[in-house]
């Protein structure tokens, strides 16, 4: 090959690489803009505060209040995260510092399998196990009546789905804490648990925050499994054992059916935009938190 063709190939490849990178960078922007473009209609029709804080949802009458959906989303995410936090944190600590190496080697593929199960299966499992359990036992225990299809069911299923995701990140984070640091704390007379509490958790705090931040973004957008167990009734839930209707479920349930009403179509696009904005904001906040926390140590 002579010099000229080599140079030409070189230039072509570098052009192609640049284009690919540009595509990756541009994709979220393109999606955001098209969502914004599609929701323009509803944004002109109702004010932003009305859309966000009104509880009236009558698409056929042209009234679109997203408050019930936002509240449902927040509750389901919140419950999912609260339930999954101690499970992930303590099992990550156990697997890294207490369990044998063989156990970790055995558990890693188990965690990966959990992560690989399609979310629809988690949904089915929720319907078969969690929903009846809530309807029969959990809700009556707290003095509520419930069919079982509820915010709580969504939260529990979500918490289980988050376990492999967050656990994997936490194990990676704990592994990066250097053995020397552990030794130093022990040599000063700390017990194993004191060392984990005062040194390991503190050292990896930024990482832990980011793991849960990523989990939060993921939880907020999780659709199918939650949709299957959450009840999908429009209305602000009064307690956790009532059904809810999170944003992703709203989009998934209705998109495609109501396209003949342009305003409804636009409303759903607005819901999608909202979802995207929330996830992006969560990401930015957790990134900022990490930078702040890392500068402290």
């Amino acid at each position: 090959m002579n010099y000229k063709t080599r140079k030409l190939k070189d230039q072509l490849v570098s052009l192609w690489i640049r284009f690919m990178v540009l595509l990756v960078v541009a994709l979220p922007l393109i999606i955001a803009f098209s969502l914004l473009y599609k929701s323009w209609l509803i944004l002109g029709h109702s004010s932003l505060s009305e859309l966000l804080f009104s509880s009236v949802w009558r698409p056929l009458a042209g009234e679109f209040g997203f408050f019930p959906f936002i509240v449902s989303s927040v509750w389901v995410t919140f419950i999912g995260l609260i339930l999954t936090t101690p499970i992930c944190l303590f099992s990550a600590i156990f697997l890294t510092y207490y369990g044998s190496r063989h156990l970790l080697r055995f558990m890693q593929p188990v965690i990966d399998i959990l992560a690989g199960i399609p979310s629809v299966i988690y949904g089915v499992w929720g319907i078969l196990v969690i929903v009846p359990a809530i309807g029969k036992y959990l809700a009556p225990m707290f003095g509520y009546e419930s069919s079982g299809f509820s915010i709580m069911a969504g939260g529990i299923v979500l918490s289980v789905m988050l376990i492999p995701f967050i656990l994997n990140i936490l194990i990676e984070i704990f592994r990066t804490v250097h053995q020397d640091l552990f030794d130093a704390s022990l040599s000063l007379g700390a017990s194993k648990w004191q060392t984990i509490k005062h040194v390991v958790l503190r050292k990896s705090f930024a990482g832990i925050v980011s793991a849960f931040g990523l989990g939060l973004s993921r939880a907020f957008g999780e659709t199918i499994a939650v949709l299957m167990v959450v009840g999908n009734v429009v209305g602000v839930p009064e307690n956790l054992f009532q059904p809810g209707y999170p944003l992703p479920a709203l989009i998934a349930n209705n998109y495609g059916e109501m396209l003949s009403i342009p305003m409804f179509d636009s409303a759903l696009m607005f819901a999608a935009l909202l979802l995207m904005v929330v996830v992006v904001v969560f990401n930015i906040i957790s990134r900022r938190t990490i930078i702040y926390l890392e500068s402290k140590h």
């Binding site: 020397d180 640091l181 030794d183 704390s185 005062h198 040194v199 503190r202 140590h297």
Partner: peptide
């Protein structure tokens, strides 16, 4: 842990605690 407190340890790389 009481035995360990009788011996201060200084390792190859300094290992300051995250505080």
């Amino acid at each position: 842990t009481l035995v360990r407190q009788k011996m201060g340890l200084l390792s190859q790389r300094p290992t300051t605690l995250p505080m």
